[in-house]
Design a protein around this nucleic acid. Structure first.
Length: 324
DNA sequence: GAGTTTGAAACT
DNA sequence: CAGTTTCAAACTC
């Protein structure tokens, strides 16, 4: 097929039917023109059919804040595509191929979205949440929790697990096996509407931005699912007036925006590693263990903690806990 | 950077 | 609805 030729209509996409027919990144030619014409947000895309014509806002548009996709086969019209699943168009930062999730193909995008809506799988700002759209509107956290994960091999200890990645414990809605989610595991006898959300060390920062009257000792909170907050690793950069633009959607923290900016330090001296080491410290009380993640929020603390010898580590951590 | 693993989405 | 395949991200080396 002529790479310059118009791509086949993606609304009836035989995605894999004929790989030879694949068009080579039709998006490339139109990228430049689209850069100034894509919508700013999910809301724009969903609230108005013409919203896609609006210019992307400076602080929230994909390409700047959104994590780019790198789809090769889905044409960015399936929920496999991060951008599409979050209700945004792909940007020039995306490394996708055969991309149809662009303003140029607005009709195709709308068609794909409608298809998914008919199947009740497309809810803007969500990642194909199986729960109802109302639920998602009510609370992305709620939707996430009620969807649950179905991890089998990752023990809910890796980012493959939505719950883990979102910094929350697994719930009764999860169908995971061998769950070792460090943020907690909700037992079946808990109240359905108030599963305990174990505050992730990652999520603490975002929670700092708000008041939490239900806070229990500052570490474990039982709160309505509607109040669950995404962790801060997906926080957008501070806007000009200094107010953080807190992500409001499940998708925002399912696909953290600033992950690529995390220094290598974050991996070497990760919070999860600290918690792993801490859990092996039998001398620590449960209360101390519940407080310790707060200490690990500080990167330098994590490095010190993991670098210290075992005996000194205990002394150091207890001193830090006292200073909290 | 390439290859593998993983879980979700899509398909049958 | 269950099983299988496809997909893209996460992870490992």
């Amino acid at each position: 097929m002529d790479p310059e030729a118009a791509p086949p209509p993606p609304s009836s996409p035989p995605l894999e039917s004929n790989p030879e027919d694949r068009v080579e990144a039709p998006a490339e030619a139109g990228k430049e023109a689209e850069r100034s014409a894509e919508p700013a947000s999910v809301e724009e895309m969903n609230n108005s059919e013409d919203a896609g014509d609006k210019k992307r806002s400076e602080d929230g548009g994909e390409g700047e804040g959104c994590r780019p996709c790198s789809c090769k086969k889905s044409r960015c019209l399936k929920l496999y595509c991060i951008c599409f699943s979050t209700g945004t168009y792909c940007s020039e930062l995306c490394g996708c191929q055969q991309c149809f999730n662009k303003l140029t193909y607005k009709e195709e995008v709308l068609s794909a979205r409608k298809e998914l809506q008919l199947r009740n799988k497309f809810s803007p700002s969500s990642k194909a949440l199986r729960s109802s759209e109302d639920e998602t509107k009510k609370s992305p956290g709620s939707a996430l929790v009620k969807r649950g994960c179905t991890c089998k091999k990752s023990s809910c200890l890796k980012k493959y697990c939505d719950c883990y990645q979102s910094g929350i414990g697994c719930t009764i809605y999860c169908k995971c096996e061998d769950c070792k989610n460090v943020f907690g595991r909700k037992d079946a006898e808990d109240e359905e509407d108030y599963p305990i959300a174990y505050r992730s060390p990652y999520s603490k920062e975002s929670l700092f931005l708000q008041d939490h009257p239900d806070d229990i000792g500052g570490h474990i909170i039982a709160q309505p699912l509607s109040q669950l907050q995404p962790p801060p690793w997906c926080l957008k950069r501070p806007v000009e007036n200094g107010i953080m633009d807190v992500p409001t959607s499940y998708a925002d923290y399912r696909y953290p925006r600033d992950k690529q900016l995390q220094p290598k330090h974050e991996k070497v001296y990760s919070i999860s590693k600290c918690i792993e080491v801490m859990n092996a410290m039998t001398e620590l009380s449960k209360n101390e263990k519940s407080l310790a993640p707060d200490v690990f929020l500080e990167p330098s603390n994590r490095e010190i903690f993991l670098s210290l010898s075992a005996d000194i580590r205990m002394m150091w951590l207890r001193r830090k806990l006292q200073n909290l």
